[in-house]
Simulated assay, not measured.
Amino acid sequence: MNAILTEKLERAKSIVLLGHVRPDGDCVGSVLAMYLYLKKTAPSKQVTVCLEKPLEKFNYLSGFSEIVTDADAVSAPDLAVALDVSDKGRLGGFQRLFDDAKDTLNIDHHITNPHFAATTICEPEASSTCELLYTLLDSDQVDEPIAAALYTGIVTDSGVFKYGSTSARTMRIAGELMEKGIPFGEIIDGAFYRKTFVQNQIMGLALLHAVENADKTVIYSIVTEAEQRRLGTVHADLDGISEQLRLTAGVKCAVLCSEMEPGSWKLSLRSLEPVDVAAIAMRYGGGGHIRAAGCTIVGKRAEEIMEEVIRAAEAQLHV
């Protein structure tokens, strides 16, 4: 196991594992993989996983039912480990546990990470936090449940191995995880492709509302809070829409602008070369990856926001 990780873990009796708000596959996969690994290799440690309630589609992962969703139910730990968290603010209601911990560690792969923990292990070149985490663990101790969690994070954050962050190492690690006996086909379907009826409905609505810029290189869609309420969706049901928009022929930048509550808009941005959407998101206090990023904007009309974002994307395209 990585020397830094070993040193941190050896000093701590109580450990809290944290992820970001609205946890995705890489977040859920990395915290549960770390949880299962510690339960196996360090059974004397008190280990707790704290997350906002994840999507039920990840309930096939071991340890899913043991996730604590109430920050007040947990005491400040000796060590708080934030996994797949690009900024301390992304800890949401669990930030108190991180701030009150005796020691902190952040394991992440976002290029915009400001190194907010006492110790940060960040590798922006990695396809996912799960890929990075695997390199820090003793591979001989990675059994099928741990491998399933790691594989979940890798396939979701790499877009099933098609995003530019996918490397030869990504594929080698995925192969090693497959050798642990995981049901890799079922994981890919369940974690990445399968959608509920209302998820298909909201995606259809977003695609119907899609608008292209003049030269058809930028595409966006606006989904209001009222539309989501009418269909009975939660915000997590919008996952995958920005990526579907990006797949439009000729498009270099795609944006889903969705209203989280009246006047608060969440932007999910996806791109192809040469558009750096992380740079665009950072203008609004967000971040992420060069080809996948996000931010939240309050106090502006959606149309005004999209005019600004289109100009920013076009400026990169027309250099």
Rank of each mutant, 00 (worst) to 15 (best):
I290K: 15
I173M: 10
G153V: 03
V47C: 07
L55M: 11
L256K: 06
Y163N: 12
L317A: 04
C130F: 07
M34A: 15
E243M: 03
C253Q: 08
V68A: 13
A149F: 02
G287C: 08
S44F: 00
V234R: 07
N59H: 06
V223S: 05
E227G: 01
F58A: 11
G250N: 05
L238G: 05
Y193F: 12
G286R: 09
K252W: 00
R90I: 02
Q141G: 02
Q95L: 06
L91E: 10
L245S: 05
E303R: 14
R230Q: 15
D157G: 08
K252M: 09
K300M: 13
T296M: 11
E259Y: 03
V255M: 15
L38E: 12
A80W: 00
D87I: 00
C257D: 13
K88T: 04
P262H: 11
F116K: 13
H110V: 03
L91D: 05
T170E: 12
E243V: 03
R11H: 09
F58P: 11
D70G: 04
R169V: 08
E52S: 07
C257S: 14
E179N: 07
S75Y: 00
G263S: 10
L38S: 12
S268T: 14
M282K: 12
V218M: 09
T156W: 13
H109C: 04
F184T: 00
D143Y: 01
S167R: 14
D78Q: 03
T135L: 05
E10W: 00
G92R: 01
G299D: 07
L9P: 04
L256G: 11
I280W: 05
P23G: 04
E176I: 00
E259Q: 14
I305A: 08
V81W: 09
A254V: 13
I111M: 10
H115E: 11
C50R: 04
A126G: 06
F94L: 01
K45P: 05
K162A: 02
L55W: 00
T217N: 12
A118P: 01
